[in-house]
Amino acid sequence: MKDKTNFWIVFLFLAPALSAILFFFIVPVISAFLISFTDFDIYTLGDFRRLRFIGFKNYVKLFEDELFYKALLNTFYFVFVGGPLSILVSLSTALLLNSQLVKFKKIFRTIYFLPVVTTIVAVAIVWRYLYHPRFGILNYILSIFGINPIDWLGDPIYAMPAIIILAVWKNFGYNMILFIAGLQNIPSELYEAAELDGASSWFKFKSITLPLLAPTTFFTSIMTMIGYFQLFAEPYVMTQGGPLNSTLSIVLYMYQEGFRWWNMGYSVSIAFVLFVIILIGTLIQFRYEKRIHY
């Protein structure tokens, strides 16, 4: 029974999925790469003979485009503030739900997880109203503590933090599940031995929990950041990138250039910058993954 399977049988099983991936993923990726070296725009769309190769001009233009820098910077802000904050909340809630002192864990786990499965467009709309400067619940709650109303989505200083708060609320449940699994894999003998030596809770957390959770923390951090680099729906629905472009993200800029202004060559070069950033993140993960395992 170790013979090779008949070619046509292999073909039958592989062809549907692989041809879909070839024609509707691989071919578009290669085309995108080629288009990024052209001046493909709305005129080309009408007449393909207008298409011209312009070498690296799109990429050079990116480096001189202040709006692109702004989008890049905003996205980094979202990723490197929102990412760690999400991980912190996920880890804290996992510790909380792993504590023997807490009741009704299963119900809390379900509730905490609920935002993860819900539609981002819908919840972004809900939060837009929660953030309303005059009638929003958030400012009302803050006013109880004597804090003056904040124009969350109308003030360039607060717009990105507002989107980060929404993202943390929406996503923390996902990594929380992974952290709970990680915590449950830590052998309880380790804690018992430490207790015999009279170790404090903080000491146990610092020298048992954190190191043994390191692989989970690392994995979730990278995956979360890769996901966060693709920020789009939140600013699209809540701010359209404003105010003063303070929430313009890379993908939102790519969408606007490509599908609103039909500067397709330029838009695709933005997508490739995103690709390179994500590639770097993935390579870092591969490189350090083995080192961090205990």
Binding site: F24, F25, V27, P28, V29, S31, A32, I35, Q230, V251, M254, G258, M264, S267, V268, A271, F272, L274, F275, I278, L279, T282
Partner: peptide, 10 residues
């Protein structure tokens, strides 16, 4: 590792 956004325009 290729993000879907890269394929969208083509």
């Amino acid at each position: 590792i290729v993000p879907g956004q890269v394929t969208m325009l083509p």
